[in-house]
Design a protein around this nucleic acid. Structure first.
Lengths: 102, 102
DNA sequence: CCTGTTGTTCGATGTTATTAGAACAACAGG
DNA sequence: CCTGTTGTTCTAATAACATCGAACAACAGG
């Protein structure tokens, strides 16, 4: 439970990010963080099992969309805005603007 | 070979478009059209079988990313720029800018 | 310690994607 | 007509994904 692999900014791929964002559950996670700021995994009200949610958080983390840090018994999730904007300027904003409000 | 289903502008979905663009083969098709204008299917130099290429063109068409029209024995592919820009402003440009040059 | 909270990992399952070969369809040009 | 070009459709095999339940791990607080 300790090893959180975050890819470096350089190793982010466009295909990977697009793939991560193409899932509705993951997109809703990203939208929620963008709207409400960083949150722990349990606060998203996802209608999937814990293990499924964990899988989606992992995909978002391993593709470089989000960052997770441990805090007590929970994990705080935040967007990697600077990294995403640096590698793919305008992409995150376009996706957030295109998606319906949370 | 005659029925080409193109979704209406309204029925384009963000998840669908992101999914379509998340595949490297399909992304290369989109990049090529964006760079060189409309092209027939055979001009992309794709390193996949004909049937595989046809599959990818279909995904791009059915998610609303490209438009295909018959012309003689071949199909001419073009981007649905206006529709994409209307529904997801800035998204296509961000994707094209983020990807490496063709 | 013991218990509850939080989230991960493992194993399994069902669905969807990707890929390719073979056969087919539409058309153009001798 | 016959042939070659272009691309689709069908069928099938492999790979990848999403999903869940159960078990586990880390931690906080009695």
């Amino acid at each position: 439970m300790r090893a959180l692999n975050h890819p470096s900014r350089k190793s982010l791929t466009l295909s990977g990010v697009l793939y991560a964002l193409s899932d509705p559950v993951r997109l809703s996670i990203v939208k929620s963080i963008a709207a409400h700021g960083e949150q722990s995994c349990g606060t998203f009200g996802l209608s999937v099992a814990k293990s499924t949610a964990s899988h989606h958080f992992r995909v978002l983390r391993e593709t470089g969309v989000i960052q997770m840090r441990a805090e007590g018994t929970q994990y705080i999730n935040s967007l990697r805005r600077e990294d995403l904007d640096s590698r793919f300027p305008g992409l995150l904003d376009a996706v957030l603007q295109a998606s319906n409000p949370v």
